[in-house]
């Protein structure tokens, strides 16, 4: 009898958005705790931990992704307003931004083109089909933008979302050791590179390293979203 009651409670809860919304928050809180426990080591990334926990949970309970997303979409939705919110640190740091305007514009152009062209070129050389190439091309910009850009070129928005997160996590893991190896001590430049290459997740990492790096990463994330959209607009004229 007990088991049957539990099953009924499960069936009821699984149908409301509350269950997977809450599960996502709990998984992330656990990921955050573990990340802090390892004193923010780049490999103990809260997104990797939360995703692994949730994927395991979905697999064990046999929950299809659309059912999960019905609840989790409320979190996903906030990516749009969060993108708009980037205007605030941009305004707050306008004097720094103006002072570094020229290096930023040059680095943005170079980085944005490198991100799109190198991803497509490498995947093409390794034999990826067109849908993969189109899904990969905008991988360095934040997901709502990347998904909107990939679709008209024949990409799969859901795949793009995954590739965007993969790129973000990788950038967050690799940026600090790589910059130390290159002996770059300019935190504005380091942060800016993190934002161009790996959007919001690179930005989150940069904020952990230094406030200055995080600010420039946030600016880069916003600017690269716009820049990549412009590259795609021009590219679509020739494709």
């Amino acid at each position: 009898m007990k088991g049957r009651e539990l099953y009924q409670i499960w069936v009821y809860l699984a149908e409301t958005p509350l269950l997977w919304l809450t599960a996502t928050l709990i998984a992330y809180v656990i990921g955050e705790r573990i990340s802090r426990g390892f004193s923010r080591h780049p490999l103990a990334n809260p997104v990797i931990i939360a995703t692994a926990l949730l994927v395991t949970l979905l697999a064990v309970t046999g929950t299809p992704y659309p059912d999960y997303f019905a609840g989790a979409q409320f979190i996903h939705f906030l990516l749009g307003p969060a993108t708009v919110a980037l205007a605030i640190p941009l305004w707050r740091n306008r004097t720094q931004v103006r002072r570094n305007l020229l290096p930023m514009v040059a680095a943005l152009l170079a980085g944005s083109l490198t991100a799109v062209a190198s991803a497509v070129a490498i995947a093409w050389m390794l034999g990826a089909p067109r849908e993969i190439l189109a899904s990969l091309a905008p991988k360095s910009v934040t997901s709502p933008i990347a998904m909107a850009l990939a679709e008209p070129l024949g990409g799969i928005p859901a795949l793009t979302a995954v590739l965007v997160v993969l790129t973000g996590v990788l950038g967050a893991v690799v940026v600090t050791p790589l910059m130390n190896l290159m002996r770059i001590r300019d935190f504005a430049a380091r942060g800016f590179a993190a934002g161009v290459a790996s959007h919001g997740l690179g930005t989150a990492r940069a904020f952990q390293v230094s406030e200055e790096a995080g600010t420039f990463a946030g600016i880069a994330l916003g600017l690269n979203g716009a820049m990549t959209a412009i590259i795609f607009m021009f590219a679509s004229l020739f494709l």
Partner: peptide, 22 residues
């Protein structure tokens, strides 16, 4: 704005779980 941006990583989790479909 700061609250949203401080928890930016969380907002990517639902999309990341989509890996299960791909």
């Amino acid at each position: 704005a700061d609250t949203l941006l401080k928890n930016l990583s969380l907002l990517f989790v639902p999309a990341a779980v989509g890996v299960i479909q791909q």
